[in-house]
Amino acid sequence: MAEYKGIVVYGELTDGKLASITTELLGCGRNLADQLKEDLSCLLASDAVGEASKEAIAFGADKVYVVEDPALKDYQSDSYIQVAEKLARDISPRAILMGQTSMGRDIAARLAFRLGVGLSTDCLDLGIDPESKLLLQTRSVYGGNAQATFSCEVMPQIVTIRPKAMTPIERDESRKGEIIATKVEIDMSKVRTKIIEKVREEVAGVKLEDASVIVSGGRGLGGPEPFNTTLKELADVLHGAVGATRPPADNGWVPEAVHIGLTGKIVAPEVYIAIAISGASQHIAGCSGSKNIIAINKDSEANIFREAKFGVVGRYEEVVPAFTRKLRELLAG
C-alpha cells in the first residue's frame, strides 16, 4: 500500500502562459502543504510548457512535473487522462487540485472514477481536519442556495476549485523548486474523440475576465437590442464589458461566452452593475466575488437587492440612460 503524501495541482496553460486559475490553485495548495508540512507539486502537460514551469515555482510549487507531447496540443479527455492517471499513480499524492474550468469539468470525474475515489467539484473552500488530516471540501450546492462540506477517506482526494475562490501567493522569482521533465507514452489508439474545428465567438471590446467594470443584463431586457445599446453605452462610459445571465445566452441574444453564472463564467470585477436581473442563485454564483454590486430592477422584492450594495428600483429604460448621462458628465468633470 503506497503512502499518500503531498499536494499536487493539475495546472493549465492559457495561450502558452500559466493560467490564472493555476496560480490560485497553487496559492491554495501552498497553504495546505505548509499545514501538512509536505510538498506542493504542479503538473503541466501541453505540447510546449516553456517558461510556465518556472512561473509555477514562483507561485509556490516545490516540484513541477513537465509533460510535453504534440498529442497534448489541444485538450481532449482521452489523451490528458493518460497523463493525469499516470502521475497520480506514480507520485501517490494525498490530494489533487484542479480548476472548475472547461478542462476540470471534463476530466476530474473521469480521473476519480478511474482511480476509484471520490470527488468534490466546484469547491469554494478547503480546510484540513485536525484529527484525520482529511481535506474538508466545501462546495456550493442547490444552485448556490446552500453550501456543503464533504470529505473522502479514499486516497488521493480529488477536488476542483471554482475560479477566483482562492488567492495566489505573491509571485517570487527567487523561490527555489525542481523541474522534472516527465515522459508519458500517450496511446493514440485510446483517443476516441476527434476535434474537427474550433470556432471562436469573438466578443468586441474589453474581455469579461479582465474587466474591472461589468454591466450585465437579464431576461428582463426582453431581447438582444438593449445589450447592444443601453448596456453597451453604459459599459463604454466605464471602459467595462457587457455580460448576461443564462436566459439571454440560451435565447441567443448574446454569445455564450458572456454568460456569467454557475455554468458560465465566474467574474469578480470592482463594479458589477446588474440590470433587469432578478438575482437567481445560479447567477449570483458567477458574480458574488464582485466588490460592489449595483442593482437596477423594477421589482423592489427582487433577490438581487439582497446581494447589492446600491440599488435603484425602477424600469431600466428610464433609469439607465439617465445614469449613463450623469456618469459621463461626472467622469468628464
Binding site: 423592489s300 437587492f305 440599488g311 428610464e318 440612460p321 439617465a322 445614469f323 448621462r325 450623469k326
Partner: peptide
C-alpha cells in the same frame, strides 16, 4: 442595500 431614490426613475438614475 442602499436604495437610491428620486422624483422620477431618471432622477434616481442620475
Amino acid at each position: 442595500c442602499e436604495i437610491i431614490e428620486g422624483e422620477t426613475p431618471a432622477e434616481a438614475g442620475a
